[in-house]
Computed example of a mutant assay.
Amino acid sequence: MIEAVKFWNEPNNKSHWDFEIDTDWSRFADMVKLSAAAVKAEKPQLTRVLGGISPIDASFIHRLQQYDTLRDIDAVAVHGFPLDWNHWQIHEWPSKIAEIEAATNLPVWVTEVGVSTFGAEEVQEFGIRRTAELLRGRVPRIFWYSLYDLPRAWEATTRHREAEGSSYYRHFYMGILREDGTPKLSMKHFADYTPEMGICQWFHFEDHRLDEAVEWLKRLGVRYLRTGLSWADWLRPDAERWFDRVMKAIEPFDTTVTFCFTPEAKGIAPHHTSPPQNNQEFADFCVEMMRRYA
């Protein structure tokens, strides 16, 4: 069921890792080294992936190599959204992959790529087709972000929220399904690219979309799924029941599980992006998830 584990999400993006606290990423490097070694000792057959970087930045990979962060890592991952947020064009995907390949001898996975329908659904139609043309056969894993639009009643994980203007609102329209579960124009094309192209779908705590999402994934012929298990959520009341339900529901897929988000009480600052006070506790969480679900 679990094909791979990822350590954190977008560590070079302040929306996900507070590098005002960890100014040189040394705390992050230590956390990944501890966690990767612990998972390797527990389940050596699982692929261990560095959390997808966003922006795509070879200098960040070089920095982590200086800390020996990648010692027990099997692949590195990148995230790209050239039609929405990145300062490069969609046809540059092969060169962006090559930049990271030149910085490491590890395989490069694309664990989030997507296009918002904020402006028009036709833009996403083009984006799926062109992304598939550029990346299928080029990298070992591709995960389209995402299956569902983010409900407007929720918040997107960004730094400045509504102050970001249209950049913020694009987060809510990344799905190939609308918030109410109805298909967008691009839905009719997605099955043309499975099973090679997977889907990244985050399930929030007690997410009402879980069962319907699984049915859609099966209908679309999806084999590879990426989702997350939040350390912060693990400390909620009744977390074991919810985690068990999620992992049971996604058993049919080859899943990449991302471990991330610091509980407020465990962070140097009381925020999910904060480095932990004790990195070993994050490693222990990863091992506990392995023992329970792998």
Rank of each mutant, 00 (worst) to 15 (best):
T194Y: 07
V32K: 03
G127I: 11
H87P: 09
E196W: 01
K266M: 15
C260N: 11
R48E: 08
R245W: 14
Y224R: 06
E196M: 03
Y168A: 10
S116C: 09
A265T: 15
W88M: 03
I56P: 08
I90M: 02
G52M: 00
M187P: 09
L34G: 04
D72F: 02
D244R: 12
H79V: 00
T256F: 13
I199V: 05
D284N: 11
L150G: 14
E112K: 00
M31V: 05
T104P: 13
Y224Q: 07
V123T: 10
E122D: 08
W231Y: 12
G165E: 12
V287C: 10
Y169R: 09
G80P: 02
N9L: 07
A37P: 00
P252K: 11
W8V: 00
R223C: 02
I100F: 08
E196Q: 06
W109V: 02
S54E: 01
D72Y: 06
W234D: 15
F259N: 11
W109E: 06
V110P: 00
S186Y: 03
K14M: 15
G228K: 05
F60T: 11
C286S: 12
A77K: 12
T227H: 13
Y193G: 01
L235T: 13
V5F: 15
N12P: 14
V49A: 10
A191Q: 09
A232C: 08
F190V: 03
W216R: 09
L220M: 10
A37E: 07
R27M: 14
W216V: 11
L147K: 06
Q66E: 14
W154N: 11
A153N: 15
M31S: 09
P82G: 02
F253W: 13
L185A: 14
H271C: 08
Y145F: 07
P183M: 07
A29S: 15
R241C: 04
M289N: 03
E288H: 05
S35N: 10
R245A: 11
A132W: 04
R292F: 08
V108K: 05
Y148G: 01
A213F: 09
I142R: 03
Y145E: 05
A98L: 03
H160A: 10
H79L: 02
Q124V: 01
I176W: 00
T262G: 10
N105W: 14
Y168H: 14
V287Q: 10
V246Q: 12
P11V: 04
T182K: 13
P140C: 12
Q65K: 08
V49F: 15
A36M: 02
R130G: 00
G267P: 14
F118I: 02
F172V: 12
L135A: 03
M197K: 03
N13M: 06
I21C: 07
G51L: 01
P94M: 06
T131Q: 01
F126K: 05
E288N: 06
I73K: 14
A232Y: 08
Q45M: 00
I53V: 14
L34K: 15
E99W: 05
D72H: 06
F143Y: 03
